[in-house]
């Protein structure tokens, strides 16, 4: 398991890494990371609007990760990984987590649908889900990915790497353009 995760994690890297984490995903880790990134972005004098957008998208990506990590039987923790990095295009946020094989189809269809929509269609889809879906205690009722796509204006890149018949490693990469 550990070797598999290390190789998946390695594939998530691109550009200059600002922050990278792999390990147990807890509410505390997410909160600490957001605090750290916020301090770092204000130190580095990132332009206000980019900083706000990046922070907003990062909140959504990390909370999504937190809500959707599937624990693999036999492994010790709720394993997940995230990397914030910079390339000339802008800031990249990558998240990775194990998902049950039976969830991959729905997740893939959902992202493909989001990626197929225009800016205007995404707005309508967001409003539809906001107004019509009941939210679970757990998460945002499926608005997270739509919101990320809307705010970044970029397609969501993703990959599933097979671990065994029951589990896949799901990685998501989003770009906040500069």
């Amino acid at each position: 398991m550990s070797e598999f995760l290390t190789s998946c994690y390695a594939k998530m890297h691109r550009g200059d890494v600002i922050l990278a984490y792999k390990g147990e995903i807890s509410a505390g880790i997410i909160a600490d990371t957001l605090g750290l990134v916020e301090a770092k972005l204000s130190d580095e004098m990132v332009e206000n609007l980019i900083r706000k957008k990046l922070y907003n998208v990062l909140v959504e990506c990390l909370q999504n990760l937190f809500h959707h990590v599937d624990k693999v039987p036999g492994s010790e923790s709720n394993f997940g990984a995230f990397i914030l990095s910079k390339t000339p295009e802008g800031y990249h946020i990558s998240t990775g987590n194990m998902v049950k094989a039976d969830k991959t189809k729905v997740l893939k269809e959902k992202i493909d649908k989001i990626n197929s929509l225009s800016k205007e269609e995404l707005k309508e889809f967001y409003k539809f889900v906001l107004n019509n879906q009941t939210f679970s205690e757990k998460g945002g009722g499926g608005l997270g990915l739509i919101d990320i796509a809307r705010k970044t204006g970029n397609k969501l890149k993703y990959d599933f790497t097979r671990y065994n018949d029951e589990y896949y490693f799901f990685s998501l990469n989003v770009l906040v353009s500069e």
């Binding site: 706000k52 922070y55 906001l130 879906q133 939210f135 945002g140 919101d147």
Partner: peptide, 13 residues
């Protein structure tokens, strides 16, 4: 609001 997440957006609605 400076920021709000999608989990809050439904509650604000």
């Amino acid at each position: 609001l400076e920021y709000f997440n999608t989990s809050s957006s439904k509650c604000i609605l």
